[in-house]
């Protein structure tokens, strides 16, 4: 049961990674790509980490730290990138 749960989480995360990263190759605006990247990099990586946490709970301190820093830094990076690139667009 736990085996399938953890593998399911990891598979979901990997699926999010692929599906959210493919729009990078397209020709949309930076902000649109940021939306899909926030799915891929934040939510996908969170799912992978949770999967690992279920699989190997022994290393929980490291994984919890990784979960936390993923959650905070990735979203803040999304905001900073959105802010910097949009200010440039106003300027043009």
């Amino acid at each position: 049961m736990l085996y399938w749960l953890s593998n399911g989480c990891i598979a979901l995360g990997l699926f999010f990674w692929f599906w959210g990263t493919f729009p990078l190759l397209g020709r949309r605006s930076v902000l649109f790509k940021l939306h899909s990247l926030s799915i891929a990099d934040t939510l996908g990586s969170l799912a992978i980490m949770v999967g690992l946490l279920i699989k190997i709970p022994r290393e929980w301190p490291l994984l919890v730290l990784a979960l936390f820093s993923l959650l905070v830094w990735n979203t803040v990076l999304g905001y900073v990138l959105a802010y910097c690139s949009s200010v440039e667009m106003d300027h043009d």
């Binding site: 990078l24 790509k33 990247l37 980490m49 993923l70 690139s85 440039e88």
Partner: peptide
């Protein structure tokens, strides 16, 4: 900016792979 997005994505993915 598109390059920056790609770099951000690479950074996250490689560090998750390291973990």
């Amino acid at each position: 900016w598109q390059k920056m997005l790609a770099f951000a994505s690479i950074a996250t993915k490689t560090s998750v792979a390291i973990i």
